[in-house]
Amino acid sequence: MERILLFFLLISSVCFGQNGEQYFARQGQMTFFSYTSVENIKAQNDQVQSVVDTNTGEIIVSILIKAFKFEKSLMEEHFNESYMESDLFPKATFQGNIIDFDPSTLGIQTRIIKGDFTLRGVTKPVDFKVNINNLGDTFSLEGDIEVLVKDYNIKIPALLSPNIANAIQVKFNLEYKPYEK
């Protein structure tokens, strides 16, 4: 409940507190890949939600762990029950700033995002490069980030460790529209 309240408070502060231009991504895509010589694993989440204030560059992203879809049901079960413990940690969140984002520049601009990423209750500072395609009334934000399994206390049983990469590649593509008040 605290996380829900936090999300609302953050959205409220972004959306209504600073007279900024607020944009909302309702169905952002996030895909992760684990590449090993034993097995390649891919999962996709098409319901990532995010708010950006284009005046301040503030960005909030919220991800439901249980909304990741896998090719095989068994992988999905292991992911939720054993690795992510998604009953205990149902969401991942990111809160940060797009550095030097210029909403008046149309077309593609490459920027750095800095902020805090929280996964399995562990919060780490992260920064990563994104490409922003500004179409005027809408814009998209795409990029990738590497997540180290050990940073977020993701415990992989020894028997399965050859199947899971130590570094997970995460790609995202978020399409923003003006937030409807």
Partner: peptide
């Protein structure tokens, strides 16, 4: 029902 972000999400 998968959970609640700003929206409730069903798959």
């Amino acid at each position: 029902l998968k959970g609640l972000l700003l929206d409730a999400i069903l798959l």
